[in-house]
Computed example of a mutant assay.
Amino acid sequence: MKKVATYYVFSGANTALTKVDKPIPALNDGEILVGIRYTTLCGSDLHTYCGLRNEPCPTILGHEIVGVIEEISPSHGGLDAQGSSLHIGDLITWTVFSSDPNTGVYQSETPQKNDKLYKYGHRQITEQDSLHGGLATHIILRPHTCIRILSKDISLAVAATINCAVATSAGALRLADTVTGKNIHIAGIGLLGLVSIAMCRELGAKNIIASDINPARLAMAKSFGATHTINLREASDNTLFQDIAVDRFIDMSGSPDAMELGIDTLGLHGRAVLVGAVFNQRKTGIDAEKVIRKLLTIKGLHNYNYTDFSTAVDFIIDNWQKYPFESLIEREFPLEEVNAAIAYALAEKPIRAGLYIHTSTAQI
């Protein structure tokens, strides 16, 4: 008897996801079957649900996932990114994409921008290709997916965030260059911002300024290592930039106002990394004369590369209990209550809502 997977289908904006039960197909060459243990609802999932992002439909949303290996194709190399042997029962995380290095446009520095990229949680369901999103009991990992084995002691909720928010934050710090001994300004205190603050703290930043419009989020920033906070709705708070020369600005908010302020207040040789502006909005204005005279560098980041992914895994392994990461998953739901989870996330705007999967196989 074939094992059956359950998944929840997104067919259009602001419509309830529908349940589908389907036999799990035989694995193709190089594939791995994973029993999903936990999925968190990323902001991009919610943007898609609300129609602010377009994804091919029908689809299975969810890409912040952690799970346990249930089957490995005999033709798979059998190793994770560190060269450790993969076994049935291993708890693993993986890149949000599969990137074929044999394509003509492949670049090792930016594998996430490869031609014909396979992105989990962002694909259309077809008869031949369905188990590719996190709002499901199972997922099939395709060849050229970077995998890391995790300790079974780690919080599943925290581990689920590694392959999106944490890895993207690692990529932002890579582009920011040296943060040790520097003054850092991070705008947008969601999960990306909080992770970036903790990473800067661990890397020995001198001052870490967190800015947002939400006082509760700014209070969270302090618990993750921010030395100063700025409420962008309080003009008087901006006087802090007169006392601290900012060396690095990382924007996770996507707000044109925040980006304009952050770039404007950079000091000489300052660097800005823009991450959050992945949706339609007004154009961001930049004072070109200041960019030139201050010798500024401005970079954009979309997703992350393999180095960032491994940096993220190592960071969480070392620090998930040092900072209050578990508290950021503010409410959990069983998978079968996915529509209630989405409604909660949209109404309450938590850092993350989590979905756990009940299973009788490959217990961890």
Rank of each mutant, 00 (worst) to 15 (best):
residue 5 A to I: 02
residue 6 T to Y: 08
residue 6 T to R: 14
residue 6 T to M: 13
residue 7 Y to L: 08
residue 8 Y to K: 03
residue 8 Y to A: 13
residue 9 V to N: 03
residue 10 F to P: 02
residue 10 F to L: 04
residue 12 G to P: 12
residue 12 G to D: 01
residue 12 G to Y: 09
residue 13 A to I: 10
residue 16 A to R: 11
residue 16 A to L: 14
residue 17 L to F: 12
residue 17 L to I: 01
residue 18 T to A: 04
residue 19 K to F: 02
residue 20 V to D: 07
residue 20 V to P: 03
residue 22 K to M: 06
residue 22 K to P: 02
residue 23 P to M: 03
residue 25 P to R: 08
residue 26 A to M: 10
residue 26 A to G: 13
residue 27 L to Y: 02
residue 27 L to D: 01
residue 28 N to D: 03
residue 29 D to W: 00
residue 31 E to F: 00
residue 31 E to A: 00
residue 31 E to Y: 00
residue 33 L to A: 00
residue 33 L to E: 02
residue 33 L to Y: 01
residue 34 V to M: 05
residue 36 I to V: 11
residue 36 I to Y: 02
residue 36 I to F: 07
residue 36 I to D: 08
residue 36 I to T: 10
residue 37 R to F: 07
residue 38 Y to R: 15
residue 39 T to L: 04
residue 40 T to M: 06
residue 41 L to W: 05
residue 42 C to A: 02
residue 42 C to L: 00
residue 42 C to E: 02
residue 43 G to Y: 03
residue 43 G to N: 09
residue 45 D to R: 02
residue 45 D to F: 02
residue 46 L to E: 01
residue 49 Y to R: 01
residue 49 Y to C: 02
residue 49 Y to G: 01
residue 51 G to N: 03
residue 51 G to W: 00
residue 53 R to K: 13
residue 53 R to C: 05
residue 55 E to Y: 14
residue 55 E to S: 14
residue 55 E to R: 15
residue 56 P to K: 07
residue 56 P to Q: 10
residue 56 P to I: 07
residue 57 C to G: 07
residue 57 C to E: 09
residue 57 C to V: 15
residue 58 P to T: 06
residue 59 T to I: 06
residue 59 T to H: 08
residue 61 L to E: 12
residue 61 L to C: 00
residue 61 L to K: 08
residue 64 E to Q: 14
residue 64 E to S: 11
residue 64 E to D: 12
residue 65 I to M: 13
residue 65 I to S: 10
residue 66 V to P: 11
residue 66 V to Q: 14
residue 66 V to T: 14
residue 66 V to L: 06
residue 68 V to R: 15
residue 68 V to Y: 08
residue 69 I to G: 03
residue 69 I to Y: 11
residue 70 E to Q: 12
residue 70 E to N: 06
residue 72 I to A: 09
residue 73 S to I: 13
residue 73 S to E: 03
residue 73 S to L: 05
residue 74 P to Y: 01
residue 74 P to R: 06
residue 75 S to I: 04
residue 75 S to P: 01
residue 76 H to D: 05
residue 77 G to H: 15
residue 78 G to Q: 08
residue 78 G to K: 12
residue 78 G to S: 04
residue 78 G to H: 04
residue 79 L to N: 11
residue 79 L to R: 08
residue 80 D to M: 10
residue 80 D to V: 12
residue 81 A to E: 11
residue 83 G to T: 11
residue 83 G to W: 15
residue 83 G to F: 11
residue 84 S to C: 09
residue 84 S to T: 15
residue 85 S to I: 15
residue 85 S to Y: 10
residue 85 S to L: 14
residue 86 L to D: 05
residue 87 H to V: 11
residue 87 H to W: 07
residue 87 H to C: 10
residue 88 I to F: 09
residue 90 D to M: 09
residue 91 L to A: 04
residue 92 I to E: 04
residue 92 I to L: 04
residue 93 T to G: 13
residue 93 T to H: 14
residue 93 T to M: 03
residue 94 W to H: 15
residue 95 T to A: 12
residue 95 T to W: 11
residue 95 T to P: 09
residue 96 V to D: 14
residue 97 F to Q: 12
residue 97 F to A: 02
residue 97 F to G: 07
residue 98 S to V: 09
residue 98 S to D: 13
residue 98 S to M: 08
residue 99 S to H: 00
residue 99 S to A: 15
residue 100 D to G: 13
residue 100 D to I: 08
residue 100 D to F: 08
